[in-house]
Simulated scan of single mutants.
Amino acid sequence: AGEGLATYWEGLAHNAPAFTIELKKLIGPFADVALIGGTLFGAGLLELALSIFIGFFLFLHGRRMTALTRQIAERVAGARARRLLSVVGVTVTGVVYGLIGTALAQGLLAGIGFWIAGVPQALLLGCLTFVLSFVPAGPPFVWGPVALWLFMQESVWWGIFVAIWGLLLVSSIDNFLRPYLLGKNTNLPVLLGLFGLIGGVLAFGLIGLFIGPTLLAVAHSLFREWIAAELEERRQPPSSSTERDQRSGPRQGV
């Protein structure tokens, strides 16, 4: 594509009216893209600042808010309130650690592989792998083009190394590390995790990468807890008073 672009640029450089016409065509779409990008960037900064502001008060009054939450939960859920709050806390912690921990491991492994293969900007590519690790099947969009670039540079063996490294380590560690970090109680099915990720991004934007899977994991854990409680109640034997009533039959009126 370079030769065609160079010819096109030389034609515009020697033709001022044509260059002006092409420039006017590009100004409108570029201005729209810049406006949309600036709006999204400003909204992201506002969300980040608001998160830090709310987090300050959560740390400042966390104990009082926790006690109030427990009282409200006991009024709503009764004796199982503390158990449900414990399930929610473990689920949220597991999802956050699972998402961030897995992404860090994949980014670190990808950066090490790129550095061994002598790929330029290995640190930057590792950070990009970390970002794309939050998206299902995201890391191959980094190490795949890198391996292809090495093949085009006639570094066939290094390209094969990067492809094998990315397939066996970077992409495969997600299947082992994420379930370990999430734990048994918060291990979401893959399809539900994908729905939580996509729905979170559509509903909340970039921060939905964390909110979506977390909310869905909490709902999934509470649903499983509700089913377990129902089965536990069914397995419990009837009380002694009920058994005596059933044995003695209907009581006679006085």
Score class of each variant (00 low, 15 high):
Ile211Gln: 07
Glu10Ala: 12
Trp157Val: 10
Leu209Glu: 03
Arg224Glu: 13
Phe223Pro: 01
Asn187Ser: 08
Phe151Tyr: 13
Arg83Gln: 12
Arg244Ala: 05
Leu12Gly: 07
Val142Ile: 15
Val88Pro: 06
Arg64Gln: 15
Leu215Pro: 04
Arg235Cys: 01
Asn175Ser: 14
Ser172Glu: 08
Leu84Ser: 13
Phe161Gly: 00
Gln106Met: 01
Leu48Thr: 08
Glu232Asn: 12
Gly55Tyr: 03
Trp143Val: 02
Glu10Pro: 00
Gly38His: 11
Asn175Glu: 04
Gln153Glu: 15
Leu191Asn: 04
Leu209Trp: 11
Ile52Leu: 09
Val162Ser: 03
Ile36Trp: 14
Gly144Glu: 12
Phe141Asn: 08
Pro139Tyr: 01
Phe223Met: 12
Glu154Ser: 13
Asp245Gly: 07
Leu182Phe: 10
Tyr180Lys: 15
Ala77Leu: 13
Glu74Ala: 15
Lys25Cys: 01
Leu109Met: 10
Gly2Cys: 01
Gly193Ile: 07
Leu182Val: 10
Pro189Ile: 13
Leu109Gly: 00
Leu109Trp: 01
Leu181Gly: 13
Ala49Ile: 11
His220Lys: 05
Ala105Ser: 10
Ile100Lys: 04
Ile227Ser: 12
Thr214Arg: 08
Leu84His: 10
Val156Phe: 09
Ile211Val: 12
Leu128Phe: 05
Ser241His: 05
Val201Glu: 13
Gln153Met: 12
Gly11Ser: 14
Ile54Gln: 05
Leu35Tyr: 04
